[in-house]
Amino acid sequence: MVKITFVESNGTEHPCEGESGMTLMEVAIKNDIKAISADCGGACACATCHVYVRPDWQDKTGQANDLEEDMLDFAVHVKDNSRLSCQIKVTDDLDGIVVDMPENQY
């Protein structure tokens, strides 16, 4: 299992575990992380699973593709390290990753 920590904008941490092959969004939903609503179910058709990947993890999560970049246009408070958690696959290399969540997804 891969350890993943989701951090709310108020600093509350939610340590979780996910299996390789899942997405960060699926891990969040499975662990009832309320700040990730994932309205489209992971189809990269909304921006309600928006997270901020901390700089020390960006190389391991990779870059957003064009479709994800387009969907991020609908997210609020987008930053250089913004990603959609539905587009980040859990791998063993992500063990220990910490992602921050925006104050809201709308």
Results as ranks from 00 to 15, higher is better:
D95N: 15
P15G: 01
A43P: 04
Q87F: 02
D73F: 10
V78I: 11
L94M: 12
I36L: 13
N81I: 09
K3H: 08
G41T: 08
L67N: 14
L67K: 11
I36H: 13
N81H: 10
L84H: 11
V99D: 07
D100A: 05
M101C: 06
Q105S: 11
K3A: 10
E103L: 05
M25T: 05
T5N: 04
A47P: 09
T12E: 10
P15S: 08
E103T: 07
K30C: 01
D39Q: 15
G11P: 04
C44Y: 14
K60V: 09
G62F: 04
I4V: 15
A47S: 15
Q63S: 12
S37F: 10
M71Q: 15
G62A: 03
C44N: 13
C16W: 01
L94Q: 12
T48Y: 14
T12C: 00
P55Q: 11
V90Y: 03
V53R: 14
S82P: 11
G41C: 11
G42V: 05
K30Q: 11
P55V: 02
L67G: 05
V76A: 00
I29T: 15
K3Q: 13
E13G: 00
N10G: 03
H77G: 13
E19C: 00
E103N: 07
M25I: 04
V98C: 10
E8G: 01
A35C: 05
I33K: 06
L84R: 08
E8M: 00
S37T: 15
N10Y: 14
L67F: 13
T61N: 08
H14W: 04
G41V: 08
D59R: 12
D56H: 07
C86L: 15
L24Q: 09
K60W: 06
K79H: 11
E17C: 01
T5S: 02
D32A: 11
K79G: 07
N65E: 13
F74K: 01
A64Q: 06
V76D: 10
Q63G: 02
Y106A: 15
P15Q: 09
C49S: 13
P15V: 04
N104F: 14
G62Q: 10
C49Y: 03
G42D: 09
C40I: 14
G41A: 11
V7F: 02
D92H: 06
E8I: 00
G18E: 07
F6W: 01
K34C: 02
K60T: 02
G96H: 10
P102Q: 08
E17I: 02
I36F: 14
C40T: 09
E13D: 02
Q105N: 07
M101D: 05
A38H: 12
N65L: 05
L94D: 14
N10E: 10
D73S: 06
A75L: 01
S82T: 15
D100I: 05
E26F: 11
Q58T: 09
A75Q: 06
A43I: 03
K79Y: 12
N31L: 06
T23Y: 05
S9H: 09
S20D: 05
K30F: 02
C16H: 06
H77P: 01
S37L: 15
A64V: 12
G42C: 11
Q87P: 00
V27H: 07
V90D: 00
D92P: 02
D73K: 08
K60Q: 13
S20A: 10
D100Q: 13
T61E: 04
A43G: 10
I4K: 05
E69F: 08
P102R: 06
D39S: 15
V99N: 12
Q58P: 03
T61R: 01
R54I: 01
